[in-house]
Simulated scan of single mutants.
Amino acid sequence: MARMHTRRRGSSGSDKPATDEPPEWSDVDEAAIEERVVELAEQGHDPSQIGMKLRDEGVQGTPIPDVKAATGKKVTEILDENDAAPDVPEDLYNLLERAVRLREHMNANQTDYQNKRALQNTESKIRRLANYYRGDELAEDFKYSYDVAKRLTE
């Protein structure tokens, strides 16, 4: 599939494990995994960072290759159940951070037209993603602006 704002195709990402079952060597209790997920969220990690930390460090010294296969729930579902979910979905939050950085750069460098275009593209993605999340993850009256993005990313 092509990228949104370029003519190139994207490079392929990593693949999920082929099986839906946890491997035999990873026999960690579901409650221990959920406890570690909540602990990492309270330390300020995003759901994707939590997955990577569990993959690399694991729980009780045993790596967890796939949280969903081990517990039957996604990381975000575990966080929702324990009231540790972030206020804004992670993908939207990352775009908001990028828009704030680009806007601050544009204020300092007003003739940087390449970054002006990048800011327009990023804000377009934010509006599109906000429409997708509006009502479920975001409030019905959510409207993107620089001030809202600045407040949410602080």
Rank of each mutant, 00 (worst) to 15 (best):
S48K: 08
A2T: 12
P22H: 03
F142S: 13
D83W: 04
H5D: 12
T111N: 11
R7G: 15
M106K: 01
L40P: 01
D136E: 08
K73F: 03
N109W: 10
E81R: 04
R98I: 02
V88H: 04
P89T: 09
G61K: 07
E39T: 09
P89N: 07
K150A: 02
V88T: 14
V148W: 11
P63M: 00
G44F: 03
G61M: 01
Y113S: 05
L40I: 04
Q60M: 14
W25M: 12
E137M: 06
G72D: 02
K16C: 02
A69L: 08
G58W: 01
R151T: 05
N131Q: 06
K53S: 04
E77H: 13
W25Y: 15
D46A: 10
K74Q: 10
G58S: 05
H5T: 09
D15T: 15
R117K: 14
L79H: 03
D56A: 13
K74S: 14
I126M: 10
A31Q: 15
L95V: 11
E35A: 15
P22M: 06
L54D: 02
M4D: 13
K68E: 14
V67D: 04
E30D: 08
P23D: 02
D83E: 13
D80N: 15
D46R: 10
A41L: 11
R151G: 02
N115S: 03
G61C: 03
E57K: 07
R134D: 01
T76K: 11
R8E: 09
V28A: 04
V37N: 08
D91E: 03
E34Q: 13
V28G: 01
E57T: 14
A84P: 00
I78W: 02
M4I: 14
R55T: 11
P47M: 09
N82I: 05
R127E: 03
E21D: 10
Q49E: 15
V148Y: 13
W25C: 04
R7N: 12
D147Y: 12
N121V: 07
S26Q: 14
V75K: 12
Q110L: 14
G10T: 04
R55Y: 15
S14I: 11
H105N: 05
P65E: 00
L152Y: 06
R134V: 00
G13K: 09
N121H: 10
H105T: 07
D27V: 04
L40N: 01
R98G: 03
L152I: 14
V28R: 01
D136S: 09
Q49N: 07
E104N: 14
V38H: 13
A85C: 01
V88Y: 09
G61H: 03
A41K: 06
Q43E: 15
I126L: 05
Y132A: 07
H45F: 03
M106P: 02
I33Q: 02
R7E: 12
Q110S: 13
A85V: 08
K125D: 14
E34V: 14
E104K: 15
S26Y: 07
P63W: 03
E140S: 06
A2Q: 10
N115G: 00
Q60T: 12
E39S: 06
W25E: 12
L102N: 08
E42I: 06
E140N: 11
I126Y: 11
A84H: 09
T111M: 11
R127W: 00
D15V: 10
V28I: 14
V59A: 04
